[in-house]
């Protein structure tokens, strides 16, 4: 498995750090890996950090939405953090506002909110 994304379990929360040079097959593989890991570790929440991503097109955007969808089904609320301003603008213009995905400004905020919700 290529290390195009790092998965870390911290205090019952699964942290997902996506690398800058992740490719299409890596990100599809990440879906499998994440759902397995979340299930195996009984994660209470997921935080996906995309601060390394300079480009998010509709394909990657859709995968991110699906990751969040998987999280919800596995009872692990999912937060997306670290989106760059240019990426946010571009996604909105592509019509991808990811309404079903929760967002936070950074990891700290996401973790705080996950804790508060529990």
């Amino acid at each position: 498995m290529a290390q195009a994304a790092g998965l870390f379990m911290v205090d019952e929360i699964m942290l997902v750090a996506i690398d800058e040079d992740i490719n299409d097959s890596d990100i599809v593989a990440l879906q499998d890996r994440l759902s397995e890991e979340v299930y195996a570790n009984d994660a209470q929440g997921i935080v996906i950090d995309i601060s390394a991503l300079e480009i998010v097109d509709t394909f990657v955007g859709r995968i991110i939405a699906q990751l969040a969808g998987i999280g919800i089904l596995l009872d692990a609320p999912t937060y997306l953090v670290g989106m760059r301003p240019a990426v946010a603008m571009t996604l909105v213009e592509l019509g991808m506002t990811l309404p079903s995905v929760k967002t936070a400004r950074n990891l700290q905020h996401a973790v705080t909110r996950l804790r508060a919700a529990r």
């Binding site: 997306l80 989106m83 990426v87 946010a88 213009e93 990811l98 967002t103 400004r105 950074n106 996401a110």
Partner: peptide, 12 residues
């Protein structure tokens, strides 16, 4: 509306 959506994507 778009600006608000982009702000939300960034977690604000």
């Amino acid at each position: 509306i778009r600006t608000a959506a982009a702000v939300r994507l960034m977690g604000g």
